[in-house]
Design a protein around this nucleic acid. Structure first.
Ligand SMILES: [Mn+2]
Ligand SMILES: [Mn+2]
Ligand SMILES: [Mn+2]
Ligand SMILES: [Mn+2]
Lengths: 224, 224
DNA sequence: TACAATTTTTAGACAAATCTAAAAAAAATA
DNA sequence: TATTTTTTTTAGATTTGTCTAAAAATTGTA
């Protein structure tokens, strides 16, 4: 019954399964996992068997996997650690939001509950990470925030940029070049139905035009 | 020529070899390494072959090992990271000096030069860690400090506690219970030749008696 | 429903890091 | 120097995490 040791590789799989379950709203297939982990399908089958033996996932051949309660707790805690470290890197060490992910990918595996507690405290119990993603609390509860994709917002409305759907370096750097970041105020001026692009005023001054690809990846919190 | 990837296990061996070389002032034997790493002698032989193939150590069967320049650079950088993280844990997250070692043992393996640079800056370029051990700079140079073992100090002399030889949790906790920490002022009042114990005044007030075992593990910087 | 495409599993291998038991080499000692 | 003790290496296994190629199962489509 003693909780067996969980390797870094196993932890990464659990996190990947958690995210696929969340995004697709259903059991994660071998294919999706192998893509997320950038490994072969055969490796995934091997690992799923190991995780099932440790009772971290619910697994039946050819049926896709979900996390057990134990697996869910571990995955949620990893996400908590990952996002707290990202906040540390940006807020305390002045990293840019496009450079923190790979470092947090390593830091999330440091095993010390006290470290997480103290870090959370040190950072002032942040509720969202540098990309606007919610940081689960110690019990695994994610903060909820009312938000809409920019692509869904009507003309004339105003709001604040609170999150990004995409996390890639090129995307984040493109936003930087437009001076768009979390907290930026936006007002929708126009929408071009031809290609789904939109014209906005940002921070009550400059105007920018965003392609559909971009405005489908930005989360806005509407003003009132 | 491209620097091959170095595993966490390999890094830990390099650090152990560095420390044995330093402490014993000569090539590290298989036995000493296996004790430091808490592994079998056979595992050490295996690993030494791997490290030699990667040109990180100078190794000839039955002759003991030393680090190559490459190996030395890696070991020194690990020590730098380990000690910087210990400072972070104590100074920023309020950990006690007896709890940080195992966590730093994991944190030292995070691979990002920028992270080390930024952390060092954030901490104000500390020269010594929470145990008084010198933190090598980015070029691998260790700060030097004039210090003596308490057991060598003559009666009547005064000084400041600047370092500990032993790092074990029980030892550090015992010092805490005596209210002895880095920076504590000590004055040598008496030395009992029978068992090598010493009577001291600390911080110009309380008196304590320390056994030889203790006073052979404390480094003092003499006043003047 | 039958065939084709896709997904998943199996079989067989490999590198890394470890182990135990036994053999070989070096060091200590009588 | 000869013998004993200690250290180091070898031999042979094991676990973890990965791979490729091929087989089996499932899903999609004509
Ligand atoms: Mn990770
Ligand atoms: Mn993030
Ligand atoms: Mn370590
Ligand atoms: Mn230390």
């Amino acid at each position: 019954m003693a909780t067996k040791k969980i390797s870094q590789a196993e932890e990464n799989y659990l996190k990947a399964i958690f995210k696929i379950n969340e995004q697709e709203g259903k059991a994660a297939g071998n294919k999706a996992i192998s893509q997320a982990m950038e490994t072969s399908a055969a490796s995934v089958t091997d690992m799923l068997r190991r995780l099932a033996k440790k009772e971290l996932i619910n697994y039946e051949s050819h049926k896709g996997v979900t996390l057990t309660e134990k697996g869910d707790r571990i995955a949620t805690n990893l996400i908590r650690k990952h996002r707290l470290w990202e906040v540390f890197l940006v807020d305390k060490l002045q990293f840019a939001w496009d450079e923190v992910h790979p470092i947090a990918e390593e830091l999330e595996h440091i095993k010390s509950d006290k470290l997480v507690t103290r870090l959370d405290e040190f950072l002032g119990h942040p509720k969202f990470d540098p990309h606007g993603d919610p940081i689960p609390d110690a019990d695994g509860n994610f903060a909820f925030r009312q938000q809409v994709l920019l692509s869904e917002v009507e003309i004339g409305k105003k709001g604040t940029l609170v999150g990004v759907q995409e996390h890639s370096k090129p995307f984040l750097q493109y936003l930087d070049s437009l001076e768009l970041g979390l907290g930026t105020e936006v007002e929708i001026l126009e929408r071009y139905s031809y290609d789904g692009s939109m014209r906005l005023r940002i921070n009550a001054s400059k105007e920018v035009v965003l392609s559909q690809k971009v405005n489908q990846n930005l989360y806005i919190k509407l003003t009132e």
